[in-house]
Design a protein around this nucleic acid. Structure first.
Lengths: 184, 184, 184, 184
DNA sequence: TATGAATGAGAGTTCATTCAT
DNA sequence: GATGAATGAACTCTCATTCAT
């Protein structure tokens, strides 16, 4: 319902949505990402409206509940991750993807997981699964490793990076341990 | 006020605190642990009172703010972890400690980190550092590994276990990857 | 936010505030004046809302704290007093002003002073000072009298009228004694 | 009920009240006077207990409600005033009494009036009436003056002194105006 | 009699959500 | 479609009062 702008061309079947409405939608999402990153899920919707430069009513016109906002944020994040995963591949595609995701999480302090989107993990799982297979084919990752623990590690590292506020060096060294474990 | 159990004068327990008060304090902490595990930091204090079977005023007599409750929970958790760490040791003491912590986190869904206690991480860090040194002496963990990434991994895995609701098998396999990485 | 009525830019009223909002603001102030007159500063904000016929949230939208309500009430009262003082003058302007203020205090039971507004007393002091000067020039008030005691008497009489619930006759006779003292 | 200690000798009909109980009663009254002077009627009873060095239960054993505390404070104050009034007399007895009362009010910042005791004003009124009569007989106060306005002025000046925090000079000058008015 | 832990109604305040403008 | 005032339930916290110890 809300993903119209990504899945369709400029004149998709949804009809000619007003330009300012689309602009507002994006600004609200950006603002919300910042607010929830800063204050957690408890961040107030009025603060979102303020940062987006719109009135509170506009926020609720676009996202009828706070949960809808959460969902939309996660959906957008997921789309970006999937796109990135699709562009990667080869022996160290998995490692590069994990590094990228963890780095982003750390930088944006986005609580990737507090905002649960049913099905979202599934899609990401497929993409990671593909990267894992390629890495195992190339011998970069041991055949003993299953997708389950890779996802678990990915999620864990994101959370850890967010709450720990990891610097670049810590991030690199921590990932190195995990990568060594996956290779063993 | 809350540190009675560790900081006592030479003449024993800090005054004859009434038995029912002590009982209530413990019940409130137990209830709060459950409530915050279930609803996150946003869980309501009234729900805590309800589960503890006391009136709301009693909760606030024992813990004058919600934050004081958070702090007390974390303090108790930390004390337990430190005790456990003290009893472990030897080549695989580190691994057994990490396993235990992650398992507990997963079972009790305690957000170990959202509740920040100044100094708490420091004490835990010391205890883990000791276990790490023993493991490195025994050759169980590589000498390249630093305490920083061990702590980062420990925190990450706890967070991951909590949000992911890991089953026993997933927990074991995920830890195995990390342990392999530490040994490499 | 509250100072709109006196501090306005060159292009008139600070934005087209909605009519119902302005109406509500006035009704809340009126209601609050009554509630605090009746119960003192301890009067409840919910009672204010009830009397104003709005929900509690509306009160807090207009006045974000109880103190802001106090301040706004006093500001409005002060504005009225200053306006009245400006219109008076001549030999018995001071006496007429004091009579008017005390009468109002008695009638509305407004605790003129418990609600302290920084600067407020200063402005009133200036206005009273002007009336005093005129009275002294006309010989109605002795030259020995200073502004300090006039203000002290004014405040005292207001307080006394409020707590004493003075009838008209008592008010008149009490003021007569004070006026005689000022003339002597 | 509470005035036992003033009205009776050391072995009055009330029986041999325990010494510590009497001591506690006085300490509580002293503490309460200070607390209510500092925080107004909103001052908390727990603070009273703390300052008196007793537990909260003891406060309520002596004064079953907060209002009872108010009443007792006022009663004690009144007794002192009456005693003082009885010792004064002569031409300027009234003026000296008023000066003394206002000075005390200013010094102790006691809100003499917020704590209304039915009947209390009556007794004080009689005492002041006697002083007034003597002053009028001596010609110090005009025969036109009635007791009503004297009481009103006394109460007003106390209130004014309390909220205004009068210094000695201001107190003296303000009273001088009033006294001039009474003499005229 | 003194204690102080427990009570619970009620306070001020916040915030997701609705709806008249 | 956008606005922002209004709503009211829910929250944290306070305090006069009760009662088991």
């Amino acid at each position: 319902m809300e993903e119209a702008e990504e899945a369709e061309g400029p004149k998709g079947p949804k009809g000619p949505k007003r330009a300012d409405a689309q602009r507002n939608r994006a600004r609200i999402l950006d603002a919300a990402e910042g607010v929830f990153a800063e204050f957690g899920p408890g961040g107030s919707t009025e603060e979102v409206a303020r940062r987006a430069g719109v009135a509170i009513g506009t926020v609720f016109r676009h996202f009828p509940t706070k949960d809808a906002l959460f969902t939309a944020i996660l959906k957008r994040l997921l789309a970006r991750l999937l796109e990135e995963a699709g562009e990667l591949g080869g022996p160290d595609g998995l490692f590069r993807f994990m590094t990228s995701v963890v780095t982003q999480a750390s930088a944006k302090r986005a609580h990737l997981i507090d905002l649960q989107l049913p099905g979202a993990v599934g899609q990401l799982r497929d993409a990671v699964g593909s990267l894992l297979a390629q890495a195992q084919d190339a011998g970069t990752v041991s055949r003993d490793v299953e997708l389950g623990e890779v996802m678990a590690l990915l999620v864990s590292l994101c959370q850890g990076a967010v709450v720990g506020g990891w610097e670049e060096r810590l991030s690199r060294r921590t990932l190195a341990v995990v990568f060594a474990g996956l290779s063993a």
